[in-house]
């Protein structure tokens, strides 16, 4: 009796189930947002897994997440802030540079890690179905946890230097979101490209070093010559960094036209990245 009941249930369920169609790859693969949402559990668990595993067999564990940007701030404060005597207005140099290092480290960590997100999860990719888009999202999500920790330290620094927050702090989530979308956008391209062309894993750390100097992290925006402003504002991290400083330190607000260019570039990279990733993901299993 019980068994026939069970039998009926599963058959009933199946009748109501939507049909999954399996077809050859198309150039333009559709994006199923509802399905991504269904896999949000997996997204969170994979972030948790990687966070948990990352600091295994380290002595100071998660302290590394704090130490990394703090050490960088120390180095920059001595070498650039003290030696070169760059003026950062009424904001002390260490806070000035750290406030930019927070989104910058987030961005570069996601970029570098994105190269390996598919390869590191090849055991999953070659054996079970799930929306592959989850994987670059996991990488960005891990970066976001580090960013939250680094941001806490930033608030401690702000308090120590006696900087008063203004209403612009309300805009902080907007610029964090912008940093997230920028990192995810570039991360999508790199995670798809490095599966096939492992060269990207080699070149990205170098590009990131150059990119660092093309972003106003160690120096203020006012030092950039007017002639270069046009090219300079093509770098979406300029908008992120300037926006973060404005929100946190009450710096001069970023130029609106520059911000607009940054936003447009971020969305082009992101949406292009999603479709490029979907186009390439069908090959992962055969190429890994």
């Amino acid at each position: 009796m019980m068994q026939s009941q069970g039998n009926h249930d599963i058959k009933d369920q199946m009748q109501r189930q939507a049909i999954t169609h399996i077809r050859p790859a198309a150039r333009l693969m559709p994006i199923h947002l509802g399905e991504l949402w269904e896999y949000s559990d997996l997204l969170l668990l994979l972030i948790w897994r990687d966070m948990k595993v990352r600091y295994k067999q380290t002595i100071i564990g998660a302290v590394w997440a704090i130490l990394q940007p703090l050490l960088m701030m120390g180095v920059l404060s001595v070498v650039i802030g003290w030696f070169s005597g760059i003026k950062t207005g009424n904001i002390p140099y260490p806070v000035f540079t750290y406030s930019a290092l927070v989104p910058w480290n987030f961005f570069t960590n996601v970029l570098v890690q994105s190269n390996y997100t598919i390869l590191n999860n090849s055991g999953l990719v070659t054996r079970v179905y799930f929306p592959r888009l989850i994987l670059p999202m996991v990488t960005a999500g891990i970066g976001l946890v580090d960013l939250a920790i680094a941001l806490l330290i930033l608030f401690v620094l702000i308090a120590l230097y006696g900087i008063t927050l203004t209403w612009t702090i309300l805009l902080l989530p907007v610029f964090i979101l912008m940093a997230l979308l920028t990192a995810l956008g570039f991360g999508l391209w790199l995670s798809a490209l490095n599966v096939e062309f492992r060269d990207f894993g080699q070149i990205v750390p170098f590009i990131v070093q150059v990119w660092f100097f093309a972003t106003p992290i160690a120096y203020p925006m006012s030092l950039v010559p007017d002639a270069l402003r046009g090219i300079y504002s093509l770098n979406p991290m300029v908008g992120v960094v300037e926006g973060m400083r404005w929100a946190l330190l009450g710096n001069a607000p970023p130029a609106m036209d520059q911000m607009l260019i940054s936003v447009v570039i971020v969305f082009v990279v992101l949406i292009g990245g999603i479709f490029f990733f979907r186009y390439k993901e069908v090959l992962f299993v055969d190429v890994i």
Binding site: Q13, H21, P24, V125, Y129
Partner: peptide, 15 residues
Amino acid sequence: SRVTLPTEGHAMIRG
């Protein structure tokens, strides 16, 4: 299992 896609043809799965 939808781990890889076919080159030709069509399959349907319910459930």
